[in-house]
Design a binder for these strands. Structure first.
Lengths: 187, 187
DNA sequence: CTAAATATAGAACAAAGTGTTTTGTATCTG
DNA sequence: CAGATACAAAACACTTTGTTCTATATTTAG
């Protein structure tokens, strides 16, 4: 890949993410991205058809690694903690979110957080779904399985949202304890 | 209030809600609202400063009654079912959502559902918060109270979202049972 | 019923944004 | 070095926005 392409792509991403921290996604104009990234109009449209496409690309790039990593862990050790793996996937995810080189938490806490949380939740939902099918958790109160899957992924995302409201006063380990306290009783 | 004002306000609301069922909020233009409501441009801006103000007004009007009604019920009977009130507030809410004269479920299931769900959740969060403070539920695992409040309101909203995905295959009573099954064990 | 107040329609407007196209220049790759 | 490719810059038609007029219709108060 051409160095120039990589450079401008990075410039666009960077400018876009910075803007997302100051105002809502819908209010950001292509023009502002051009100014901040210091690139030409035609260049932008050579890379992305629309602003929505840019958003998708950012989501994919940012959450790709995190979800893949969680998927690997889940596949070998399951969702919850056990002897071989003392940490749950949820704790793993929270730590991973915090250790970001790129500013993922910034995006999840920004004014357009719903967009990213929704993307995050969909990925998470898939992960838990697979795990439920593989390990076929007992379902003693005959609740629909996809209700349970949705409840777990949904609650997790809502917790992250709560976490970010007062800027990480809690550690990933604490949050993991809270989450297990409200989820494990129903499994 | 002038009949003309009421008439145009209704026309705007109606057109706006209909449009929301066909496309995302951000993609709807004021022009489209004008055309559908069959009113003049200046008339619209005499009623609402921006499209965002219109959105707020619609939220307020639609969720106002539902939340007020739930708030009353909670105040006299508490959140959960008991001898005097055999139905939980949650069941009450779900039934109320379904019996809508105006099309609330339509909005909660539309492409811009996050907007309305977020508004709904904030109202709900307040309601549960008040109830927790009044009845000071036991908290035996020393979880932060606002974490629990957030978990309950968040889970409820996520359940509604799940419910709407396959268009009300479940009754409010069934959903209430599911919800109690995942919430009561932690209280 | 009349008159004053007010809500609306319609048109015109500047400003800002969108997405495309063209031309010339700079930078890569082989 | 030479051809290919990415870029900047400008111009473009087009859409949307929010404001400001004037004229007309409707309501409410006296």
């Amino acid at each position: 890949m051409d160095r120039r392409q990589i450079k401008t792509r990075r410039a666009i991403f960077s400018a876009f993410v910075k803007l997302l921290e100051t105002k809502r996604y819908e209010k950001i104009t292509v023009q502002e991205i051009l100014d901040k990234a210091d690139i030409g109009r035609s260049t932008f449209y050579a890379h992305f058809e629309t602003k929505d496409e840019l958003l998708k690309a950012v989501c994919k790039e940012l959450f790709g690694h995190i979800i893949d990593s969680a998927m690997d862990k889940t596949h070998t050790h399951g969702l919850y903690s056990n002897k071989e793996a003392p940490q749950s996937v949820f704790c793993h995810l929270l730590q991973h979110l915090q250790e970001n080189d790129n500013n993922i938490l910034g995006l999840l806490a920004c004014e357009s957080s719903e967009i990213f949380l929704r993307y995050f939740k969909d990925s998470l939902n898939e992960l838990i779904q697979i795990q439920f099918v593989n390990h076929s958790c007992r379902d003693n109160r005959d609740l629909p399985q996809d209700f349970l899957v949705n409840h777990i992924s949904g609650s997790f995302v809502e917790m992250v949202l709560w976490w970010l409201k007062d800027k990480g006063k809690h550690t990933p380990e604490e949050l993991d304890r809270y989450f297990r306290a409200v989820i494990e009783p129903i499994l």
